[in-house]
Nucleic acid binder design. Sequence first.
DNA 1: TCCTTGACGGAGA
DNA 2: ATCTCCGCCAAGG
Length: 103
Amino acid sequence: MQDFTLKIIQTIVAIPAGRVATYGQIAAIAGNHRAARQVSRVLHTCTSKYQLPWHRVIGAAGKISIPKDHTAYLRQKKKLEQEGIEFGLSDTIDLSLYQWSGQ
DNA sequence: TCCTTGACGGAGA
DNA sequence: ATCTCCGCCAAGG
């Protein structure tokens, strides 16, 4: 595995409960602000192996990045609500309220 | 092996 | 507000 991929994993693991982080933010902390796409790949393939808090990663627009017709969409929303995160209209999360400060 | 495809995002137009 | 165009790089075909 690439060193960068490992950093992405470590960054995701560091996200505290009750907070969320965006793909771009994670990529930036891991060292490459342009690798947001790589973050999605890591989540897609390494979640089970590394027990990542995948549900705390959302898009820059403050919305869940999973198609609504996918069952995981609801699972993610519920997990976040259980941690105290509230959803506004059109299932949008207010980043100014819940975004992780980083490090 | 080459090509396409993403749970993405920022900069332009 | 909407729409391309790229960067990044591991999988799957």
